[in-house]
Design a protein around this nucleic acid. Sequence first.
DNA 1: GCTTGACCTATAGCGCGCTATAGGTTGTGT
DNA 2: ACACAACCTATAGCGCGCTATAGGTCAAGC
Lengths: 146, 146
Amino acid sequence: MDRVPPSLTPQLDVDVPDEGLSIGDAAATVGLSVQTLRYYEREGLLLDPAPRRSNGHRRFHRNDLDWLAGLVMLRETGMPIAQVRDVAALSRTPGTERERLAAFEEHRETVVAQLKRTREHLAALDTKIAAYRAYVAREEETIHDE
Amino acid sequence: MDRVPPSLTPQLDVDVPDEGLSIGDAAATVGLSVQTLRYYEREGLLLDPAPRRSNGHRRFHRNDLDWLAGLVMLRETGMPIAQVRDVAALSRTPGTERERLAAFEEHRETVVAQLKRTREHLAALDTKIAAYRAYVAREEETIHDE
DNA sequence: GCTTGACCTATAGCGCGCTATAGGTTGTGT
DNA sequence: ACACAACCTATAGCGCGCTATAGGTCAAGC
């Protein structure tokens, strides 16, 4: 078996017609621009180049959309293009399930670390905001007192 | 009063000598490169251009370091340079405490939103990891059975 | 006295991730 | 029949945030 069965990667809850989606609809569905989607294909981030209709237009099917949703997730959690490309290459190669798992687990660690940092920054920001609120409140009082 | 008193923005718990730090030490302290620090100065992200010694070398004092820590926090939570510049400009202008507060509160919202998205992405990533773990485990079993 | 290193200014260059432009084909609605 | 939108390829350009380079001053240590 080459890839994890689709049933195990439930990403998207939109229904995709059997004939697939145009690039415009696909882009809208996953929240990318049409250019970006073509760019991703060129850069080898897709599982496969999207199949074309007789007129040369791309069609995106269910599994493409699922993959795209995952790819957007990786990108939005800060995974660089090059690394996504590596993951895509792995996912194209049968018998690399362990490596894929390792890649995802490693990325998970970076996301968790990033989350932690952001939470700490948020705390600092809250401290700053509290200080300013106190200052502004104090100023208001002073005006009242006059 | 021009700025919020330093006591209300406790950012950094390192002690800074009275004569201040060199740019190298300051950069190391706040986790930036020397070039980046100079770049930030040029771009007007500092409260004021750092004062120079007779030899033209910058000195960073306590309040500069505090500001820098805050600036790094803003940058690392994704605030663009241009917006940091605006905040710096506000912080230079007396009587703008309310605007500064508003800027920080607004940024807080974007950070919270970003945090939420990242947590959702993390959940999706965890689902993927779980699926792969199950797959790999199942594969292992199959090999055992042979 | 001379090298070494940290600093200085000024300016050019770069990596990333798109985004825009040119020039063309297809197909759908009026 | 014809305009108009959506698609196509190929390639150039751009915004952001640094980072590197050139060319120099100064201070300390060997």
